[in-house]
């Protein structure tokens, strides 16, 4: 048989039959799965897979160990949630130690732990100063602040919801006779 260029060629049907036979042969091998592979090839492939898996597992283990070693440094800096966790645990130990009267935990007694938790001595001093200033402003409000506060909370006694009428129902009955 000749093709359109006049060259001798295998008919399309024969070529398709050849392709079909090759497909069938490959399908038989593919359906056999591992059994369709030559002896040793499957073992070599799986050995590669296992080696890579083991290498990755030990790499991950090393990374975890490195992260564990790095953690105490972060706790000392007092930054981050993970860094605060050991301090909180230490505070628990301090509570126990303080209540039991025995030796303190890693961070010392209750007040020492509380002082550290609030940020140390300077922070406590600042907190105290702010508390005293707040109390002073409440007791002796400055002139500039007093007028706006009066208008805000209402200077009129009539509308003040916190005032209580001291007269009782019996007083009313007495007056009516």
């Amino acid at each position: 048989m000749a093709d359109r260029n006049g060259k001798h060629t295998l008919p399309e049907t024969d070529l398709e039959a050849l392709f079909g036979a090759a497909r069938d042969a490959d399908r038989v091998a593919a359906e056999a799965g591992e059994l369709g592979l030559p002896p040793g090839l499957s073992a070599r492939i799986l050995s590669d897979a296992d080696s890579l898996q083991e290498a990755r597992a030990s790499e991950a283990q090393r990374a975890r160990a490195a992260a564990r070693h790095a953690r105490p440094g972060r706790a000392a800096s007092g930054l981050g949630v993970a860094g605060l966790m050991p301090a909180a645990a230490g505070m628990g130990g301090g509570f126990g130690g303080g209540l039991a009267g025995g030796p303190g935990g890693p961070g010392g007694g209750f007040w020492a732990q509380l002082t550290r938790a609030l940020g140390g001595g300077p922070a406590l001093a600042g907190l105290g100063a702010v508390a005293i200033a707040g109390l002073w402003v409440g007791v002796m409000p400055p002139e500039a602040l007093a007028t706006p506060l009066d208008s805000l909370f209402g200077a009129s006694l009539d509308s003040n919801p916190y005032l209580v009428d001291a007269t009782t129902a019996y007083d009313f009955l007495d007056s009516e006779g």
Binding site: A30, E34, G36, L46, A49, D50, Q53
Partner: peptide, 20 residues
């Protein structure tokens, strides 16, 4: 994720096609 059985299944499924 570390599953060795998955490697065996993938090998059985794909390697014959690659070889062909």
């Amino acid at each position: 994720n570390g599953d060795g059985e998955a490697a065996r299944l993938l090998t059985a499924r794909l390697a014959p096609r690659v070889l062909a």
